[in-house]
């Protein structure tokens, strides 16, 4: 029992209740009056808490990175879509107001041959390039595929103008001879592995390493040195059929899919298919082989992998769109909304 109530109890016995009320109330009031700080330093502490404004330190931003966010916001998406545009209705029209013309492959080559005719650019043996635009989204929505570099085997060989150094590892005499016949300059067995280990032969002189499975026990010692370039089945560099692998690596179409710097789900491939003076059907078959090789990289998800494909040939700046879907072997059943080839192209 507190002191106050103790006193009340005593008072209660002495005085009548009506009198008690009037007398006690003033006593209680005086007890609550207080003209000092609630606790020492409370006011100061609250003042301090209010004034505190955090000043964020902004580090140095290089001049080319300033305003990056505004740049990204203003940047047009590279993903191509002209579905909102109308189909042409006349025989003469400016292309930019209408959907892109989808050329049949041979017509596109014919158009390029016109610009490279001796009477115009005079470059009938110019390289024919194909650009493939890819949807680099992986299985999950915010995961993206890695850049990939591959070599596609083509049915019709041409001079790609690249120096491709290949090192072939094979144990048996038979497979070594097979590799030499296929055109490999450097072929060797376990002695080659030792030379690399001792440093007599540098791995930097070679771009690609191909191996026959029979040499694998010795070759494993080089795994640490070669790292990602170590021959493996997945990339097609560890196979018994050396001839076809070497042929592909020496004479195939080498291409690289590069993701956009900012738009991570957009990738692009530029590859040479051949020369303009090659046969139409040969070029077409090369393209079919190339596009099918690209399509093997499609991640396991729904939706399209290839946005569009177009052919171009320097020095002309023309880009002629072609329908890639008709060349895909493993393609799903054709959709109803598939773009029709515009037949109005007159060449």
């Amino acid at each position: 029992m507190s002191l106050l109530s103790n006193k009340l109890f005593q008072l209660n016995q002495l005085i009548a209740p009506q009198k008690l009320l009037t007398r006690i109330v003033p006593i209680v009031n005086t007890l609550q009056e207080r003209n000092y700080a609630a606790r020492k330093g409370t006011r100061e502490r609250k003042k301090k808490a209010k004034v505190k404004v955090e000043i964020k330190k902004v580090g140095f931003i290089a001049h080319n990175l300033r305003g990056r966010e505004q740049m990204l916001a203003a940047r047009a998406s590279k993903k191509f879509s002209d579905t909102w545009k109308a189909d042409p209705i006349d025989n003469v029209y400016p292309m930019k107001y209408y959907k892109w013309i989808v050329y049949p492959f041979s017509e596109a080559i014919k158009a390029h041959r016109e610009t490279h005719h001796p009477e115009i650019y005079n470059k009938p043996d110019a390289e024919l390039y194909a650009t493939v635009e890819l949807n680099m989204q992986a299985e999950k929505k915010n995961r993206f595929m890695e850049n990939f570099t591959r070599i596609a085997a083509v049915p019709h060989k041409f001079d790609h103008g690249e120096d491709r150094n290949i090192l072939v590892f094979a144990k048996s005499e038979e497979s070594q001879n097979e590799a030499r016949e296929a055109g490999a300059q450097y072929v060797g067995g376990p002695e080659l592995v030792k030379q690399i280990q001792t440093g007599q032969l540098s791995l930097y002189d070679f771009q690609y390493f191909i191996a026959h499975p029979d040499i694998l026990p010795e070759l494993v010692q080089l795994r640490g040195v070669m790292k990602r370039r170590f021959p493996n089945v997945k990339s097609g560099t560890l196979e018994t059929d050396l001839k076809s692998v070497i042929d592909r690596y020496l004479r195939g179409i080498s291409y690289q899919a590069v993701k956009d710097e900012y738009e991570k789900d957009f990738g692009q491939i530029n590859a040479v298919l051949g020369h303009l003076n090659m046969n139409d059907t040969h070029l077409e078959e090369n393209f079919a082989a190339f596009i099918n090789d690209v399509y093997t990289q499609k991640p396991k998800r729904d939706g399209s992998f290839i946005y569009r494909c177009y052919l171009w040939s320097p020095p002309s700046s023309e880009k002629l769109k072609i329908d890639h879907e008709m060349y895909l072997d493993a393609a799903e059943e054709p959709k109803e909304e598939k773009q029709k080839i515009v037949q109005t192209v007159v060449l």
């Binding site: 025989n91 003469v92 029209y93 400016p94 009477e119 115009i120 650019y121 005079n122 002309s316 007159v346």
Partner: peptide, 30 residues
């Protein structure tokens, strides 16, 4: 654009190609 070294006579297909390069579809017979 025509060649500087190779002889030529200007024909509709040269002009058609130039039109296509500049982004206009114009057939030969037009």
């Amino acid at each position: 654009v025509m060649n500087k070294d190779h002889p030529w006579v200007l024909k509709p297909w040269h002009v058609k190609t130039s039109f296509r390069k500049s982004g206009y579809v114009v057939p030969d017979d037009a």
